[in-house]
Design a binder for these strands. Structure first.
Lengths: 227, 227
DNA sequence: AGTCTTTCTGATGCGGCGTCAGATTTTGGT
DNA sequence: ACCAAAATCTGACGCCGCATCAGAAAGACT
């Protein structure tokens, strides 16, 4: 299968990531516009249709074009989803600012944890359909999506690991990256299963509190008995 | 359209949950056997095929029967997945024993947390494909699967919440159910994205350590500064 | 206006879905 | 052991989405 692309931004480096259509040619104004329209309709539909039921036909119908056109710009359904997710993953990098350079000790630390949790919840809320699919396909084991998820959370994780090192000094008794990864990994989990908690009569505000505590503890590393 | 069922275990109560076939009749020996064979082939295939690509035809081919037979016992693909997941979810109830009645303070508490983490990892490992799908469809928002996931984790969560209450006495400053729910919710997340961590050069053993710490803290509730 | 390039589409073969009506196997009464 | 009735299975079918191609339509350039 062609390894072609749809990666709009492979890495902020090269000036113009060519963005070729499936047949290898570089689309012009009109082409890019339809491509964009297809992307938007995909996002739109993701909000109302479960992943498994999302058909290429649905997207093209919504975009007012024909199936063949779709295949001009995307290899298959997953490719368009990947492109959508890529865009969102970049947006997510902004969350790094909620971590790096924040105070993490004492009361200010709790405030920082609060801000992080709230920021993440808001981020998830405003991109729910896309992030759901990203999570889905990455759980599913698809390499491209798993990689993308890692990249998305990578910035936050590294930032948080750095903060953990700063707070706990040398010889923290847990690998800071592992702790950061666990904490950051909790966030999508919590945001994603929000409905689950409520179906359970646990007010989401309480879950938020729990998350804040866990982050605070994770960063500050209270004493744990030796074994 | 028929709303019928295929739920083998609607609730542990009534002696014989009838288990009707789609046409309303009660299957006999032979029928149950084929039904079982279909279930087993489904599990088998889940291990090698991504959810979206799993076709009814694949299952029937594997079971050496015809598509029509499949529809005799299951309304659709999701129904068979639900049945599979239901079975696994019940198995999961055993994990409650790793929580209820264990010691949670001091060094023994760390040991209990360790046992819980390891037990869960093993549980996940031995049912990976099924649990992946359960998580998947529940993330997807499907009511039946979400409910099932809640039921599966419910026992563990309630048990852990009880332990939290015991340890922290009255006036814990976080809702025990919310904390327990968060901690228990982390477990599938961690087990499921194990590959993700490793793609990241974080040894899974370190993640395990982090999880153990978080559980210990969550149960014992170290001091957190007031704001 | 004429030509070349880009972009779009209708038509098509393939394969899975879900449902019949009827064939095949099993059961149970005699 | 036999046979009718019940249970179970299946081949065949219409429908729809997938993915592709050849060629039509729309733009761009001179």
């Amino acid at each position: 299968m062609a390894k072609s692309d749809a990666s709009s931004t492979s890495r902020g480096h090269r000036a113009a990531p060519p963005l070729r259509a499936v047949d290898g040619r570089v689309p012009g104004r009109r082409g890019l516009a339809t491509r964009q329209r297809l992307l938007e309709c995909t996002i739109e539909l993701l909000g109302t249709t479960p992943y498994r039921d999302l058909k290429v036909t649905d997207i093209t119908r919504a975009a007012g074009t024909s199936p063949a056109t779709f295949y001009q710009y995307f290899v298959d359904l997953e490719t368009v989803l990947l492109a959508v997710a890529e865009h969102t993953a970049e947006e997510g990098q902004r969350l790094v600012d909620l971590i790096a350079g924040q105070p993490w000790k004492g009361a200010a630390g709790v405030a920082s944890a609060e801000a992080l949790v709230d920021g993440f919840i808001e981020f998830w809320r405003s991109h729910r359909p896309t992030l759901r699919v990203l999570d889905l396909l990455s759980t599913e084991g698809d390499k491209r999506f798993r990689h993308l998820r890692v990249v998305m959370l990578n910035g936050m994780t590294k930032a948080l690991a750095t903060e953990i090192e700063t707070v706990q000094g040398k010889s923290p008794d847990v690998d800071p990256m592992a702790m950061a990864g666990s904490l950051i990994g909790m966030l999508p989990q919590m945001a994603g299963h929000q409905g689950g908690f409520e179906a359970w009569d646990i007010p989401f505000a309480h879950v938020r509190q729990a998350m804040i505590r866990l982050i605070y503890w994770g960063v500050n590393g209270p004493k744990v008995p030796k074994r």
